[in-house]
Design a protein around this nucleic acid. Structure first.
Lengths: 191, 191
DNA sequence: GTACGATTTCTAGCATCGCTAGATTGCGAT
DNA sequence: ATCGCAATCTAGCGATGCTAGAAATCGTAC
């Protein structure tokens, strides 16, 4: 049975190669440059191979997004751990979120902008998504006051996403991005 | 010179027909269904005619977006006028914004999601965009407190957009949308 | 070592996309 | 009625995502 195991291992490796290549390409030239032909050329296989791993391009973007959620979770947890005070933690979380979006624009797009078919708040929601939401809940739940924690987290997250999305698309000027974030945190977390 | 005038009038009419058709098509079947071929067929002209009015598809989407900004402005102003009390006005504005996004999803996408090449906060920013921002500023400026009004408005707007965008893309459940909005308004406007 | 059989991979192609060059038409001016 | 210009169309280019069917590869059995 060793042969089959090797094949599976190689398959898994190639699967990961596709995801990593798509991410690389997206981060360096934007998602519009991630075409099945370019992707196939980069991994040194023909296009149909992609379809033996993924249902289509959408699912490849989804796989990249999943990586993103895992990384966002650790980025948030790390930032909060460095500043565990209530108010400081919230601010650290917010800045970590925005930093993440700024440093991985294509990854962020895959997670929150592009259509990946990934289901959020649902029974079939992939673990990394739940985990990321959990990371937010851990620190933001404390300052929810009398509002339902999950709902408050969704609101906070939405506000962060709004800033990230509008800034990224050039609809908000790059300047004062940090001041905007501070205003938001003060109002949402304040007393 | 009446001939030339008639031609210009007809041209302007056709220009508007293209925009209206693109918007119709987008609102009824999504922007991915708005192709130059389908658009040309609907207006009963060949594709190249589109390019005698617009530089390309992007500019057509931009023209639709411009309509959206004008309509958003009146929607906000009307909502605020109906409830001019400070706190009520802010809540009315927020609900009007979210209602607008929900009722005109494709239009909203053109304004805030798709790449239209429209420049925001810039000298060359089209009037309807400035006007929309102005409408926000009129009511939100009052509750900015000691923070710079323009900056506060940007933050408020971002938060609204975050809610709208995540809800629209299915990343936030449809349920409780109104409660989320109330939480947001209370935290941003309250104190 | 060789030949078979199944799995893997590739070649080639489809329909569709945004966009454009060059032919063709139609219309106002003479 | 005819000419010339402007408006419009036909036809096509290089891409896109995706797939059917041919070709090659590789483990297995003799």
């Amino acid at each position: 049975m060793s042969v089959q195991e090797r094949k599976e291992r190689e398959r898994a490796q190639r699967h990961q190669l596709i995801v990593a290549t798509a991410r690389d390409l997206a981060e360096s030239q934007g998602w519009e440059a991630v075409t099945t032909r370019r992707l196939a050329e980069r991994i040194e296989y023909s296009q149909p191979v992609l379809y033996s791993h993924f249902r289509g391009k959408k699912e490849i973007v989804g796989a990249v997004a999943l990586e993103g959620f895992a990384e966002l979770t650790t980025a948030i947890r790390r930032a909060v751990a460095e500043d565990p005070e209530d108010r400081g933690a919230v601010s650290a979380l917010a800045h970590a979120y925005i930093d993440f979006a700024e440093r991985n624009p294509a990854l962020y797009d895959a997670m929150f902008l592009l259509d990946t078919g990934l289901l959020f708040a649902d029974e079939t929601t992939p673990a990394p998504l739940r985990e990321a939401f959990g990371a937010l809940l851990e620190t933001l739940g404390d300052i929810a006051g009398d509002t339902e924690p999950a709902l408050f987290v969704e609101v906070f997250w939405s506000a962060l996403h709004g800033l990230a999305a509008l800034t990224r698309s050039g609809r908000l000027p790059q300047a004062n991005a940090s001041r905007r974030l501070d205003i938001l945190v003060e109002r949402l977390a304040g007393h």
